[in-house]
Nucleic acid binder design. Structure first.
Lengths: 189, 189
DNA sequence: TTATCAAACTAACAATTGTTAGTTTTGTTC
DNA sequence: GAACAAAACTAACAATTGTTAGTTTGATAA
């Protein structure tokens, strides 16, 4: 066990609180109480409340961006790429479910460059996703229902994993991936 | 066009703001500015900020509860029931996409009885959903992947419709329902 | 012991929050 | 135009917000 830096401990505690009540509803005093210290003491380790949020979100966004780039540039079928995307989301969710709450619900409270860079990463991510599906349809690997609906429904599910996963007890990552791939790609009927 | 009550206008304006920034980050002065009046004037029409939130959420929750009860008690196949649930979500979303943002993201800021009654409605809703899927699996209508994953993935998509639908231009409700049913039930492969 | 440094503390600030009280404006009805 | 109600206003409040300044504590190294 490598000891976590005090800052990282604060960021982790904040992610849990942000998940429960949202960024705006969590006060620095709430966070300090959760850490067992006074609010002012937090500022020995972090620069601002905003810095906590951006630390949580940007790091996760970069993980997704890196993962997606690897997948997009790989030489695989569209279906395989979709499977890898599902796997990526599950991996990130298992590692940091709390932080994903902020990424999903509080990104709009980012400021300046962080907001812009987040929005760019998210748009690029979605565009990559869309392109994979499009190519899959062209290659007749994927049913040409409505491409936008496929992208939307798959991404909705993957983005909500952070809420659902913690409620499942002792679920194995490998089984989860297999089942999720089956449901999302082969359907339920 | 029936004239909306001033209170309803305020609630509608609030729903839009809550969607953009979340309940906690929207101040009564923000809302007043959006209405073109001063913050204090809002209180001629509403009792509190909290009342606005509960008006938005409880009404929607009751719509879902009513709709779900009709479907559960109907005499149809499990697949048909799932189709009707999809249809229900689309109908509610088309009618009040803004309010659904609060229902999805700000329900935890409800207080007292409203919080309890919301949580009960949501749990009952999910339990009904789960039971329909379970019966469908028993009747061999539905593939027995992982029931929890089916419930989760379908519900995730339906709950996120409020974000996606407004970005689609001039999409016909009937076509949307058909396509959504196809993707969610028959899959994409 | 002494010096050092991270990490806690107390005390306070200026700004913002939801809300109230009391008053004025606006528009409709007799 | 008098009367009335709806809906706006001004002014202020007590509480809470993120944050800063300066100080004390506690452990480690010299």
């Amino acid at each position: 066990m490598k000891p976590e830096s005090r800052k990282q401990e604060i960021v982790n505690a904040a992610a849990i609180l942000f998940k429960e009540k949202g960024y705006s509803a969590v006060t620095m005093r709430d966070l300090a109480t959760a850490m067992g210290i006074k609010a002012a003491s937090l500022y020995n380790h972090i620069q601002s409340k905003q810095e906590i949020l951006s630390t949580i979100i940007i790091e996760l966004a970069e993980e997704f961006t890196t993962g997606m780039n690897l997948i997009v540039n790989s030489d695989q079928s569209a279906i395989r790429k979709l499977e890898n995307i599902i796997s990526l989301h599950i991996d990130v969710t298992l590692r940091n479910a709390d932080g994903l709450a902020s990424l999903n619900n509080d990104w709009m409270h980012l400021e300046e460059e962080n907001l812009l860079s987040f929005e760019k990463m998210r748009n690029d991510y979605e565009e990559n996703f869309r392109q994979i599906v499009r190519k899959g349809v062209d290659a007749k690997e994927i049913k040409s229902n409505n491409i936008e609906i496929i992208v939307f429904s798959t991404l909705s599910t993957l983005r909500t994993l952070y809420l659902w996963y913690p409620k499942q007890k002792n679920i194995d990552a490998g089984i989860l991936k297999k089942d999720m791939i089956a449901v999302l790609l082969q359907g339920v009927v």
